Amino acid sequence: MSPSKEPTVSELPAPEPEHCPGPESEKAGQDEACVGCANKEICESLPKGPDPDLPEINKRLNMIDHKILVLSGKGGVGKSTFTSMLSWALAADDQLEVGAMDLDICGPSLPRMLGAEGESIHQSNSGWTPVYVADNLGLMSILFMLPDPDSAIIWRGSKKNGLIKQFLKDVDWGDRLDYLVVDTPPGTSDEHLSVTTYMKEVGIDGALIVTTPQEVALLDVRKEIDFCRKAGIKILGLVENMSGFVCPNCQGESQIFKPTTGGGESLCTELGIEFLGLVPLDPRIGKCCDSGQCFFDDYGDSPAAEAILDVVDKLRDQVELSLGDLSLKG
């Protein structure tokens, strides 16, 4: 399906009001927000009830052992960069099958970071085939569907939600996937609500929260943590990215973004969540992401690489603890 095609059940003649319950909601056309809306009659006439695509989504996602969301309320903290590092680190274990899903629909960057820019997806009877950047690392992104990588995605929420649904329902990851790492955009809006709603029945292992040391980043991260708690998403832990700068030549360390309120570790203590570690700023990470190279292949002995791999180990431990909690509840 082309990304230019509207994936919703009906094209509404007017923009949705601010607190629109959604055209497929049980309250569509009947909510307080619907009063005076030009879409009211159309929304009232649409079919209600359970989403008919949910069984197909559940069937597809049940073939994935672990599902991790990478979140941050703040843009520019290195969330997509860390998603790419996490994907490379997991795929370094050739016994694992890893998938990365880029849900930053308006600003997809994982194809560039994972060296898959310019590739395209293929469709078969079994669904969309992701682009493989390694034998055991597949990637799905809207960038593979655009006629021009510089094309702007100017979509309303309903169209974004339709594409996310198709990513979850139609991407064929093979017979088994050990880890699906989902990169999300900043904020707590359409994309986040959609992915958590569609994945609710099969379960999300949890969320990895990424921040930088400054309070201006932590302000938005607090909102993301609150979102996870309200949405029932387990927080696997928080990582503080760009925490100091380690000179590649002299190994000297300095604080570029100095924490004014204690940084990520203090926030974790305050809110009672797991602190996974500090990752220093290393300009070679940006260089590798720009060229689509695996940072660990070239700079595996760097302080940043060691810090990231330590975070990944702790994250996998948290995933196992999460599975233990589920088995105890069962």
Rank of each mutant, 00 (worst) to 15 (best):
S2C: 01
S2M: 02
P3V: 13
P3Y: 14
S10V: 14
P13R: 03
E18S: 13
C20N: 06
P21A: 04
P23F: 11
K27E: 14
A28D: 05
A33R: 06
A33F: 09
A33N: 05
A33P: 10
P50V: 08
D51W: 08
P52R: 11
P52A: 11
P52K: 13
L61T: 09
I68G: 06
I68F: 07
L71K: 05
S72P: 02
K74H: 07
G75W: 07
S80N: 03
T81R: 04
A91I: 00
D94K: 15
Q95P: 00
L96H: 07
L96Q: 11
M101I: 01
D104L: 11
I105V: 15
C106G: 03
R112P: 02
M113I: 00
L114T: 00
G118C: 06
E119Q: 13
Q123Y: 13
G127C: 06
G127L: 05
P130R: 04
D135T: 11
L139C: 01
M145I: 00
M145V: 01
L146A: 07
L146G: 02
P147K: 05
D148R: 03
D150V: 04
R156M: 02
G157W: 06
F167I: 12
L168A: 10
W173G: 06
W173P: 03
S189P: 10
D190W: 13
E201N: 15
E201G: 05
V202Q: 14
D205N: 15
D205W: 09
G206Q: 14
G206F: 14
G206H: 13
I209Y: 10
T211W: 08
T212A: 11
P213C: 12
Q214N: 04
V216Y: 05
A217R: 09
K223N: 08
E224F: 01
K234A: 14
L236D: 10
L238S: 02
V239G: 12
M242K: 02
S243C: 14
C247L: 07
P248S: 10
N249A: 06
N249P: 00
Q251P: 00
S254P: 00
I256N: 06
K258S: 13
G262M: 05
S266W: 05
L271Y: 11
G272P: 08
I273S: 06
L276F: 05
R284Y: 09
G286Q: 12
C288W: 05
G292L: 01
F296T: 00
S302K: 12
P303G: 01
A304S: 15
A304M: 04
E306Y: 00
I308R: 02
D310K: 11
V311R: 01
D313Q: 11
K314R: 15
Q318L: 04
L321K: 15
K329L: 13
G330S: 11
